[in-house]
Amino acid sequence: MEHSDILVNIQNLSKLFPVGGGIFRHSDVFVHAVSGFNLQIKRGESVGLVGESGCGKSTTGKLLTRLLDPTEGKIEIASEQGVIDIASLRGKKLKTFRRNVQMIFQDPYESMNPRLTIYDTVAEPLNVQGIGTITEREARITELLETVGLTPAASFLFRYPHELSGGQRQRVAIARALIISPLFVVADEPTSMLDVSVRTGVMHLMQDLATNLNVTYLYITHDLAVARYMCNRIAVMYLGKLVELAETEELLQHAQHPYTKALLSAVPVPDPTYKRSAVEIKGGISKPINPEPRCRFYDRCPLADDSCRDNPHPELEDKGDQHFVACHKI
């Protein structure tokens, strides 16, 4: 990987949430929502972040968009001003830098202020950042609405979100995220609330925009089948840790980590004659509250032995062809 190709370089990113505690009392019990997270994302690439609910994938998205402050670690983004670590940016610098990183949310019904028109919603980033004159903004919003498939744009500009269907709203959300030409977009389950017949259109739109506007995505999802179509690479997360990272087809065909294997064999297949292999793991997902210094997957792993219990959580290792796995047993 050429270093100059890397747009986002996440190093040792961690986020701990205190459990209990209060205003005057500090807690020493923490949920390790994200810990020691490393990932490089290339310019123009779409990386899928896959895992079950509670694995920390949404927290990662919020850290990358600085909705949350990281406990430690670096998020370096290669912008026009050079490589900047946004993990510690504050105030005006952070506000300016927000132009480079935007987010598309899961729920098209809740991600827009019901009291603002489509025009006001899409214009918000421009207004807040003070970009362009009013006429320029209007022209740009009109163009972008047409680009995301809301034609004629004039008929959508002054409608309210509740007057649009779910698919149309998600297109507005995409337009809003792209209006200030961000380098990097975090998409948190952008299609999971949409119906199948509408979903494909939104998926295609996001792919087209990635190609035409050179947008780089981190695509957070629980749905591996959607990730297969949307992502160049897939990263699998379990209890705050990355456990496997590979090219999409490589990961789906040759998964190595026992958790990834279990996840893959649990996905229902839209073919009644296809026989899936049995899911081999046991138990359920728990919360990583002050986790023991051992493999996070130890309790559920079919391969686990004493070495998994006695050694700390394994690091991601390249097993060839950029296929990274974090497991002592492989």
Partner: peptide, 9 residues
């Protein structure tokens, strides 16, 4: 329109 993780993409 329904994606699957098995079979041809």
């Amino acid at each position: 329109a329904f994606p699957s993780i098995v079979g041809e993409k």
